[in-house]
Design a protein around this nucleic acid. Sequence first.
DNA 1: ATGTGACTCGCAGTCCGTT
DNA 2: AAACGGACTGCGAGTCACA
Lengths: 75, 75
Amino acid sequence: MRQDAQQLFGLRVKQLRLSKDISQEELGALSNLDRTYISGIERGKRNVSLKNILQIASALGVPALELFNIPEFKG
Amino acid sequence: MRQDAQQLFGLRVKQLRLSKDISQEELGALSNLDRTYISGIERGKRNVSLKNILQIASALGVPALELFNIPEFKG
DNA sequence: ATGTGACTCGCAGTCCGTT
DNA sequence: AAACGGACTGCGAGTCACA
């Protein structure tokens, strides 16, 4: 596995968050996760678990699948 | 978040694994994960992390996105 | 409004086995 | 081949003060 996979995922979260025009704090509130935790995810410092992936997707109002809609993830 | 989300994910893994005609043991070997852990995932008992999600997708030869290609995840 | 290091604690993930 | 259990270690979850 590539080391930067987490970063790509984090960038995708950031991308979707910005497209919704909300702050990390707001996303944190919507997904019941700490704002600093969201920050860590977007910077690729966190190896997020399935549970939190689904919560974030839900908070962003997109299917979980969208968080993996990244060219580099498709082989 | 729904409680059964993990189970849906596990069923999807199982579905893809069976379509490849490989055993849990083989998938474990391919993804560098313990066979009992794969079993737990498929039964919805495990909260898999991003890193392992990507490893499993890679072992199955599908983009990570495919693991989330579940009707119930899109609503 | 965000980045970051450090921290505790529960669970992710492994390894032994039985059914 | 797979479900399931017990015991273990290390890592992720979740939070804080501060920049």
